[in-house]
């Protein structure tokens, strides 16, 4: 009992923030159920690419590689996913192509940072600029797809008031992101893969001396991470928007990194952080709907970016990042 109480006290600020957000949401929703539910459902939707991006960043950083190229991985995958769907009319093939493209981009980051030992930040930036240039060149305006990924209701759960609409009536990649949060949390802290991943991110030579191949593990994790970023890209073009636009990631890959840091390199923490960021997006729509600040849409547009900066400035250093990130590892 005591520990529960302690936990509540430790988390008191978060609980207050949570309650304040709920209260504000109800206020913004004009004290009616439907708009309030809509804001919360939109929060979950907006958080999907962020939580996927953050999971990608986390798997990479936990194994000691900074992935600043999430933005580029997402953008490229959004493009490839869209193009494949436009060509084949299959959303599933599109998502699979996005996933594969992300994995390829992850492998590319591995090539630059693990095999060639390049600076990780520069390597990620190269991916970003490369993805922006290549997608701009290859994209032909006017291509369309017929539909977005369909909304799937989870049986009777979807009929529950409020909660049903928020959690059990979503599009497939949103469910996938929730599932991945749980799976990656379990894998990271309970399995051999997780132990080895954490070890190579903290002290790679220690792992190497007990026979764990740092290079192989980093490649594996960068590819897994890239795949998850690929899903985020597919989400953007196939689930959220239903088309591709130049630079459509619009900084989400970077916001995802802030989400990861805010969530203290923990999948569950990152999910919570992503919800907070998703909320800043979701509330914008409601602001416009209510006619608040409509004369100054630019200020509403700034919110997610300013929140990101505030989070970075306020929370970095409170949690310890993996000790070995940013440094190439060589045995000799």
């Amino acid at each position: 009992m005591n520990s529960l109480l302690e936990r509540i006290i430790r988390l008191r600020w978060w609980i207050l923030v949570f309650l304040a957000i709920i209260a504000f949401t109800i206020f913004a929703g004009d004290f009616r159920q439907d708009p309030t539910t809509a804001i919360l459902a939109a929060t979950l939707r907006h958080s999907t690419p962020l939580v996927l991006g953050a999971l990608c960043g986390m798997i990479c950083e936990r194994s000691g590689v900074i992935n600043i190229g999430i933005e580029g991985q997402m953008l490229m995958s959004a493009f490839v996913g869209f193009t494949v769907t436009a060509a084949t009319s299959s959303l599933y093939l599109g998502v699979a192509a996005g996933l594969a493209c992300g994995m390829l981009m992850g492998a590319a980051l591995g090539g630059l940072t693990v095999s060639l030992q390049g600076d990780q930040i520069i390597a990620g930036t190269v991916l970003n600029i490369f993805a922006l240039g290549l997608t701009s060149f290859l994209y032909t305006p006017g291509e369309t797809i017929h539909s977005k990924t369909p909304r799937i209701s989870v049986g009777p759960l979807a009929d529950l008031p409020v909660v049903g609409k928020i959690f059990f009536s979503n599009q497939p990649l949103t469910y996938v992101s929730l599932l991945l949060v749980a799976v990656i949390w379990y894998a990271l802290f309970k399995t051999t893969w997780g132990l080895r991943t954490r070890a190579i991110g903290e002290h790679p030579s220690a792992a190497e001396t007990v026979g764990v191949s740092v290079a192989k593990m980093r490649y594996l994790n960068l590819i897994i991470g890239g795949g998850i970023a690929g899903l985020a890209g597919a989400y953007l073009s196939l689930e959220a928007v239903g088309s591709f636009e130049r630079g459509m990631t619009n900084g989400k890959g970077f916001v995802a990194l802030a989400v990861m840091i805010f969530g203290r390199w923990n999948p569950v923490g990152a999910w919570g952080a992503a919800l907070l960021f998703g909320y800043t997006n979701a509330i914008q729509t409601q602001f416009q709907f209510r006619g608040w600040l409509t004369g100054h849409p630019q200020f509403i547009g700034m919110i997610p970016f300013i929140v990101t900066i505030v989070v970075l400035a306020g929370f970095v250093g409170r949690a310890r990042p993996p000790a070995a990130i940013g440094q190439p590892y060589t045995r000799e």
Partner: peptide, 13 residues
């Protein structure tokens, strides 16, 4: 690995 436990360090690999 400083942040891991004694057991985790010993069995790693």
């Amino acid at each position: 690995v400083p942040v891991l436990t004694v057991t985790e360090n010993i069995v790693l690999g």
